[in-house]
Every structure is written in C-alpha cells, then in structure tokens.
Simulated scan of single mutants.
Amino acid sequence: MGRRPSGGGVSPVRAGLIAALATLVLDQASKLWLYFGTDLVMTQPWRLAPFADFVVVWNRGVSYGLFQQDGGLGRWLLVGVSLVAAIGLSVWMRRAGSRLLAVALGLIVGGALGNAIDRAAYGAVFDFVHLHAGTWSWYVFNVADGAIVAGVIGLLLDSLRPAGRDPHADVSENGSHPQA
C-alpha cells in the first residue's frame, strides 16, 4: 500500500490519506455548520478581525470565480473534472516516496472532493472566508480552497528538495568513488 518510512512512523500514503480525509471532513463540517447551523446567511458579514470576515458566496466557477457555469452541463463537467483530478492525484499519492509529497497531494485531493460535493449537492461551491485590508480585497474561499493552496505549496517545496541519493554512489572529481 505505500512505502513504510525507515524510521518508523506513518507511511507516506497513510499520511496522505489522513490529510485528504481530515481536509474533507473539516471542509464539509465548516460549510454545513455555517450554512445550516448559524444565521450567517441573514446577518452577514461577520467581522472576525479587521482583515477577515465570514460571508456567504456561491461560486459556480473554479478558483477565483473563473469559468462561471450557470447550466447543468457545466456544473457536472466541473464535478467530473474534480473527481478525475482526485483519482489521478490519489494514484500519484499512492506512489509518493515522501510524507511531504503525499500530504500535499492528500490536501489537494480532500479539497477537490469537498468542492465537488458542494457542486453536486448545491450546484455551486459555498465559500465563506473573505480577507481584506483597506481597499484591497482577496477572493472569498473555504477550507477546501485553503487546503488546495497549501497542497500546491507542499508540491513546490517537495520539488525543491534534493532527490534521495545513495552517498556511496557519488563519484568524486577525479572519478574515484569516495571511501566509506
């Protein structure tokens, strides 16, 4: 099922699955609670800090509100794309050689599934966190979106790590192998 780390602990694939499940549960729980368990819809915005509010925004597109889909075909196309991406990233996660890579992929998978559930159930994704400062305003997002961004950052960090090498396989400048 995934490689077990040599120092004990959680295997990369298990860490990725935990990240995916935690993301999915936190995303759906936060959306369900805010939408059905509070009066946010009627009393928005809720000021959390001078730079952050809770609001209700239904996003019928993808990130940053791009590719808005009003019809059923576009909605189900986006659900399908999310599911295909989650499956593909899950296959990659299963083969991940590091926990960082697997967790990054798990965050993206969990986020994609969370937003796909919203699209399938409501026809749009429920976004609720609005960051702003003065006249600057960031797009409204949710837990799934935050996890996807964190996952992409994890992928970038993983790509910057040097590939694991056998130190005995290195060749010195004069062509000889270093002594052990």
Rank of each mutant, 00 (worst) to 15 (best):
R14V: 09
A180M: 14
G37R: 08
G123S: 04
L160P: 07
G16Y: 04
P5E: 04
S137M: 06
F51Q: 15
A20N: 06
G134S: 09
S90E: 07
V55A: 00
S11R: 09
V41I: 14
T23H: 02
G71V: 09
G8T: 11
Y35Q: 13
D118M: 08
F54G: 02
A15G: 10
V25M: 09
A150Y: 03
G134W: 04
R3P: 08
A96N: 10
L73D: 06
V143L: 02
P5D: 06
H168F: 14
V143M: 02
G114P: 08
Q44R: 03
D118G: 15
R95M: 01
Q179C: 10
G164T: 13
F141Y: 01
G151H: 06
L17D: 07
L78Y: 07
G37N: 04
G71T: 14
V56Y: 02
L113E: 14
L155W: 03
A121P: 06
L73R: 02
S172A: 15
S6L: 15
V57A: 04
P178Q: 10
V103D: 07
D158V: 05
Y64D: 11
W92I: 15
A144D: 03
A15P: 05
I18H: 10
S11K: 07
A133N: 12
A20Q: 07
I117K: 08
G106K: 11
G146L: 01
L107T: 09
S6D: 11
L131T: 03
F54P: 00
Q68S: 15
A96D: 13
L66D: 00
F54T: 00
S172G: 10
G175E: 06
A147F: 04
L26E: 05
Q44D: 07
R94W: 14
L107W: 09
A112S: 05
V140C: 00
P167F: 11
A20F: 02
G97K: 14
L83V: 15
A19R: 15
G61K: 00
R94P: 07
A112W: 13
A19H: 11
V143E: 00
H132M: 03
R47D: 12
V41F: 05
A163P: 09
A29F: 02
G97Q: 15
T23A: 02
I87E: 02
P50T: 04
M93I: 10
A144R: 00
D70F: 13
R75N: 14
A133F: 15
V103C: 12
S6P: 10
V62M: 08
A104W: 00
F141C: 03
V109S: 09
A19L: 04
D27N: 12
G8A: 13
F128P: 01
A144W: 01
G175Q: 10
Y139W: 01
L107Q: 14
G97Y: 13
A22Q: 06
L78N: 05
P167H: 06
